[in-house]
Design a protein around this nucleic acid. Sequence first.
DNA 1: ATATATCCTTGACATACATCAACCGCATGC
DNA 2: GCATGCGGTTGATGTATGTCAAGGATATAT
Lengths: 254, 254
Amino acid sequence: MTYINRMLAPELKDSLQECVDCPIRHRAVCARCESEELDALDRVKYYRSFQAGQTVVWSGDRMDFVASLVSGVATLTQTLEDGRTQMVGLLLPSDFIGRPGRDRAPYNVTATTDVLMCCFRKKPFEEMMVRTPHIGQRLLEMTLDELDSAREWMLLLGRKNAREKIASLLAIVARRDAAMHLRKAKGKLSLDLPLTREAMADYLGLTLETVSRQMSSLKRDGVIELQGKRHVIVPDFDRLLEEAGDDSDGGLPE
Amino acid sequence: MTYINRMLAPELKDSLQECVDCPIRHRAVCARCESEELDALDRVKYYRSFQAGQTVVWSGDRMDFVASLVSGVATLTQTLEDGRTQMVGLLLPSDFIGRPGRDRAPYNVTATTDVLMCCFRKKPFEEMMVRTPHIGQRLLEMTLDELDSAREWMLLLGRKNAREKIASLLAIVARRDAAMHLRKAKGKLSLDLPLTREAMADYLGLTLETVSRQMSSLKRDGVIELQGKRHVIVPDFDRLLEEAGDDSDGGLPE
DNA sequence: ATATATCCTTGACATACATCAACCGCATGC
DNA sequence: GCATGCGGTTGATGTATGTCAAGGATATAT
């Protein structure tokens, strides 16, 4: 069953890191998953890996599998004819890819780092969804969450200025980072951006130059510190949230 | 059962207009809906109406019901502290409001015209979802569709210019209009905008002045004709789609 | 008929961000 | 050693859209 875990047992999020890192150890961690159904699914799963920069599927292509991201970072993007591109999804380990009930991918899926995916053919997966309501329910829950974050993202794209956009992105990454690794060095928070400046720009609806300038500006103003280009230190998370302009006081998960 | 129909029977979309307009006639139209479960649900449903401009729920408020929009237009909006607001959902008749499993509304829901909603208390609705997998499946399908349109919307917000945004919105409204009324006067297509210029601006991440200017510009260039402020005639839908800059050749549903 | 409010349009001007271009730092390869 | 490429930074300049302001059209109320 392994990587399907997040779909089945939300309360297992804490042990997710273990699940993801070590399929073998996982059975010990997650007793709930020991059903025959899942064993059956386990038998039809297979793995695919992609190198950084590789495209998993192109928008419009047939996609006869669903998958769970095991490691690495992938993005969903949409493009206009002239090449303008907008990221519409950022996939981190344990995120779900694909959708039961449709067989063409509506977006480009691209690996931005080296990526490992755990795949299931769509048909057996769908059959199991019918037999095991748990899975459908969990999938609904995950989809509703995604819809919520898509809508927050829309607020960002439509109404925030460049500085707020950058700060928001950093806060989002910090939060997701923290949710997975719980790596928070006493007040000072540090995070690795899994994105190039260009990918950040595509996330935020900006150009890479503007991203770069705003990163420099936030650094000048002491909101962040930079070690290298990708490693960011956040001395004061609340300050960052202020810069993000967000209404909701969404602190870090403890 | 009436308004829950869209959730249960996607193939009934054609008869939706009848369902929505006339609850009484509906039973005749939709044989599939005559189950005991639904009768039970039918017994706990109730109606609420709102006047144009009224707020149905504020973001963060308790929301102990789910609902189906019977008539009128409602919007989901998010705001920043300083009042900048972004529309994140546009609800037309038969759209679903609320989400099982959460009890606080994550957005403002506002009636932009007079609105009638068919409501169900959340608890009995959720119980029925457990007993009737159909409903959960349908809800998943609808949520996935919403996620898709949210993501197209993100492309619009992040990467389209003002003219393309306006053209896209008109195309979207035209499509949804057509899907419901099938009102297409031989080539020439006419539609009523259910939104003020300000609401359009909030949809598109623009100011109302820019919306107004671009409408005028599209009119000057013969892409649209205006009768009054809200009634739009589209002489050539393909031309409009070109202006929208969209890759996908999403014609009108026939 | 006159007032008032709402929604919309248009103009003049300001500015945030995009565009174009040069250059830096650091790999990798010959 | 030096070239080449990639990701990133910074500067000069342009422009699309925001901002501020005035006024038009229509409806409702007095």
